[in-house]
Simulated scan of single mutants.
Amino acid sequence: MRFAHSIAVAASIGIAALAGAPAVAQQTASAENQASEGEVNASNEILCRRQPPPTGSRIGGRNICKTRAEWERLQREARNEIEDAQRTGLQSN
């Protein structure tokens, strides 16, 4: 009797889990869409950075504002240029 009761409980739990599977799939897809929208919004976020004044200047620096994607692109380009210079060394043309 106890064994039959535990089988019935397990079966009802399994059916409940299967019935909730489409809802879980929809929630997962919705969360993925929100994550991709969040990434797009984050890359469009505008960040302002303070540029130091030129050496010898008594006038303060200035703020430069760009999107997060632009700042990342500039950083990537600068890193690539430095790596290229380190690879080639001080070669003259």
Rank of each mutant, 00 (worst) to 15 (best):
F3D: 08
F3K: 03
A4V: 08
A4H: 09
H5V: 07
I7S: 05
A8I: 04
V9W: 12
A10M: 13
A10T: 07
A11T: 05
I13N: 01
G14S: 09
I15H: 00
A17V: 00
A21L: 11
A23E: 14
V24M: 13
A25C: 02
T28W: 11
A29K: 04
A29C: 01
A29F: 02
S30Q: 09
S30K: 04
A31W: 05
A31M: 05
Q34R: 12
A35M: 11
S36R: 14
G38C: 07
G38P: 00
E39H: 09
E39Q: 13
N41R: 07
N41L: 08
A42R: 04
S43G: 05
N44I: 07
E45Y: 06
I46Q: 11
I46V: 11
L47R: 03
C48K: 12
R49G: 06
R50W: 15
R50L: 15
R50C: 09
Q51D: 14
R58M: 07
G60C: 06
G60P: 01
G60V: 07
R62F: 13
N63Q: 06
N63K: 02
N63L: 06
I64M: 04
C65E: 11
R68Q: 11
E70A: 04
E70C: 00
E70F: 00
E70Y: 01
W71G: 02
E72M: 06
L74E: 15
L74F: 14
Q75W: 13
Q75M: 12
E77D: 10
E77K: 04
A78Q: 15
A78H: 15
A78C: 14
N80A: 14
E81I: 08
E81V: 08
A85N: 12
A85L: 14
Q86P: 00
Q86V: 00
R87S: 10
T88Q: 15
Q91T: 02
Q91Y: 07
S92G: 05
N93D: 09
